[in-house]
Design a binder for these strands. Structure first.
Lengths: 237, 237
DNA sequence: ATTACTAGCTGTCGAGTAA
DNA sequence: TTTACTCGACAGCTAGTAA
């Protein structure tokens, strides 16, 4: 992903051309589409379709390789971002409040063993009991996500979770974190913790649970684990 | 909702103006917004914003009442439809496969007592046992939805459910139906049946369950019932 | 068959301005 | 302050055509 082009910077007519490509499956894989075909879809001329493709490519929103049988077009990550921006805007404003679940898979890794310190703070613990409905084991399990699940983490963060308020004790202050109720390996309840200012990289999920997960599932570093997280769309009415 | 204007007929630049209005909360309630304010949001001139509003109104996508303090703008059902069309397109193509839950509330009504006939057909029963995981009580419960839940029914239908295939017996043929696994009154598992060619009006949900719900909850016609239905976004990858 | 250039047309934009 | 008109400028469109 190069320079991020906000969807707002993409002119409306080009955005709709990009959308037409999306509708024709150019998101995940390159798609064979001629300028004549695209013009039919857009309801314009072949010349305009051609120009749109040139401009979209120039802006880095699509990749193409042109052959005599028609161009091979694929939307870039940057293009997907421009589309997703509008998707999120529409969802925010049009969708009812619903719960959604997102499934993650990853492998167990060792963290910095700081989790225990934070979780055992009464300020956090009390809220977890109250809002998540369980008394957390004093420690967190770190899950390194598969590459293909990185995008899902962003999806999860775009959902509403349970907010655990920050607080102060004698020594220092602790920031707010969000928590998404989760089901671990289809079996154990728990939660995913997302700190608003995280010290972890985005490919690691921090998991809490009422029980000691490493022991319960006999987990060693590198073992696979599945986590099903729940969040809400935000309500706007 | 008058003549249905497909989002495809709305010119890109007008669609984006409509989207800007949505982002500013003009979906559910009228919103006070002057042409100067709108022009700032759109990054254009006051004159263009004014023209866009005129055109959107002409097309029936918004309603306005103009006052000296700035116009009061509300997006019409038709306008919402034009926005939703794009939302659904984006969702279909960008979203991962996730389960979503939708909650319905309604009151128990008497149906035509045909449910028992259909459910007891082995062709349906076997599939329900296999795909839903329970042996259905031979009958359906009809739930008359609240007005505000009618839209949710469409949301539910836009999700993927479990398909119960049609079949033939000696006498006649039976059509396919879709079923959405559900939780009734937070307690009993069951499913919502949506026939592809329904004889019921859209404000009535047909519910199946392994138990006789009327007896279990001591239900009389007019009693309230809550149903939480689960469906999947369609996968496109 | 393709894509994409040039030329000329059309429609959108925005400054000025009226109501 | 508003909204919205007129009209000159030009962005984006299409037809014709080249490669």
């Amino acid at each position: 992903m190069n320079k991020q082009i906000s969807a707002k910077r993409v002119k409306p007519y080009l955005w709709f051309s990009l959308y037409a490509l999306l509708e024709n499956g150019a998101a995940s894989k390159p798609v064979r589409i001629s300028t004549v075909e695209l013009s039919k879809i857009l309801g314009g001329s072949q010349q305009s379709a051609s120009r749109h493709l040139q401009l979209l490519e120039e802006m880095g929103l699509i990749n193409r390789s042109i052959t005599p049988e028609g161009g091979l077009v694929r939307i870039t990550d940057c293009g997907i971002a421009a589309l997703t921006e509008i998707l999120n805007g529409l969802k925010r404003n049009l969708e009812e409040d619903r719960t959604e679940s997102i499934e993650f898979q990853g492998v167990v890794t060792s963290g910095l063993f700081e989790g225990a310190y934070y979780i055992s703070k009464e300020g956090y613990r009390r809220q977890i009991i109250e809002k998540l409905g369980f008394d957390p084991y004093p420690g967190t399990l770190n899950l390194k996500l598969r590459r293909e699940d990185l995008k899902k983490r962003k999806d999860l963060e775009s959902l509403l979770g349970v907010t655990i308020q920050g607080f102060k004790d004698e020594e220092r202050s602790f920031g707010s974190v969000r928590c998404y109720p989760s089901l671990i390996n289809d079996q154990v309840e728990g939660g995913i913790i997302i700190a608003d200012r995280t010290i972890y990289d985005e490919s690691v999920l921090e998991i809490i649970s009422p029980i000691y997960l490493r022991k319960h599932f006999s987990l060693k570093d590198g073992d696979k684990l599945k986590v099903l997280a729940f969040g809400y769309n935000r309500k706007e009415k």
